[in-house]
Amino acid sequence: IDAAQIVDEALEQGITLFVVNNRLQYETSRDSIPTELLNKWKQHKQELIDFLNQLD
């Protein structure tokens, strides 16, 4: 699994991931984030931050 897949998966569930001051953040209108997704974010945090920083 790679960062792009995780970002896409989040988007499919209505969650936008982004980076502020090198910290992973998210925006969503959902009430809660699925635990499975949160765990993936934690496991791949640095990859996600690097990936999202490249997009900007």
Rank of each mutant, 00 (worst) to 15 (best):
N21C: 14
D31P: 11
D50G: 06
D50L: 08
L11C: 14
A4H: 13
L17F: 06
N21R: 05
Q54A: 14
E27N: 11
L11P: 01
D56S: 12
I33R: 01
L52G: 00
D31R: 08
L11R: 14
P34R: 03
L52H: 00
L11Y: 10
V20G: 04
T16M: 11
P34W: 02
A4D: 03
L52C: 02
S32H: 11
T16F: 14
D2M: 13
S29I: 08
Q54P: 06
E12K: 15
I6V: 06
R23N: 15
P34T: 05
D50I: 10
S29Q: 11
D8L: 15
Q43G: 06
A4S: 11
Q43P: 03
Q54V: 08
R23P: 01
I6T: 03
F18A: 08
Y26D: 00
L38A: 05
A4Q: 12
E47N: 07
G14D: 05
A4F: 05
K40G: 02
F51Q: 02
W41I: 15
K40L: 12
W41P: 00
T28V: 04
T28P: 09
E36A: 10
I1D: 07
V7M: 05
Q46M: 07
L38D: 02
R23D: 15
T35V: 14
I15K: 01
A3H: 03
E12V: 08
N21T: 04
D2C: 15
Q46F: 07
R23M: 15
S29E: 12
L48F: 02
D31N: 10
I33D: 02
W41G: 01
L48R: 00
I33T: 03
K45P: 04
N21Q: 08
I15S: 01
K40M: 10
L52F: 08
S32L: 07
G14V: 02
R30P: 02
Q54Y: 10
A10Q: 00
Q13Y: 14
Q5D: 08
N53I: 13
W41S: 01
D56A: 14
Q25D: 06
L38V: 08
L55D: 07
D2A: 12
Q13W: 15
E27T: 13
I49A: 02
A4G: 09
N22P: 01
L55I: 11
S32K: 08
A10Y: 03
I49T: 05
I1L: 11
Q43V: 10
L38S: 05
A3K: 02
T16L: 14
L55R: 15
L24E: 00
E12I: 10
E9I: 04
S32F: 13
L24M: 03
L17S: 11
G14Y: 04
I6S: 02
I33F: 04
I1N: 09
Q13M: 15
T16W: 12
Q54K: 13
R30F: 06
D31C: 11
G14R: 04
L48G: 00
Q5H: 10
Q5I: 09
F18D: 04
V20E: 14
L37G: 00
L17E: 01
D31V: 10
I15T: 02
F51P: 00
G14Q: 05
D2N: 14
T35E: 13
D2E: 10
F18L: 12
L24W: 01
T35A: 13
N22K: 05
Q43W: 07
T16Q: 09
W41R: 00
I6A: 03
H44N: 07
N21E: 11
Q46R: 10
L24S: 01
K42N: 13
N22D: 08
K42I: 14
K42T: 12
D2H: 12
I1F: 12
E9D: 06
T28W: 04
L48A: 00
T35Q: 13
Y26I: 07
N22V: 05
W41E: 00
S29C: 13
Q43A: 12
E27M: 12
K40C: 12
E9V: 02
S29W: 08
G14H: 05
Y26K: 01
N53G: 07
V7G: 01
K42Y: 14
L52I: 07
R23H: 14
Q13P: 00
D31F: 06
V20K: 13
K40E: 04
E12H: 11
I6Y: 05
D31H: 09
S29H: 09
Q46E: 09
L55A: 10
N21M: 07
Q54D: 09
I49E: 04
L24G: 01
I6C: 05
D8F: 15
Q54N: 11
D2T: 15
W41K: 01
T35M: 13
N39F: 12
I49C: 04
T35P: 12
F51Y: 15
L37D: 02
F51N: 01
A4I: 05
L24R: 00
N39E: 14
Q5L: 10
F18V: 13
D31W: 04
K40Y: 08
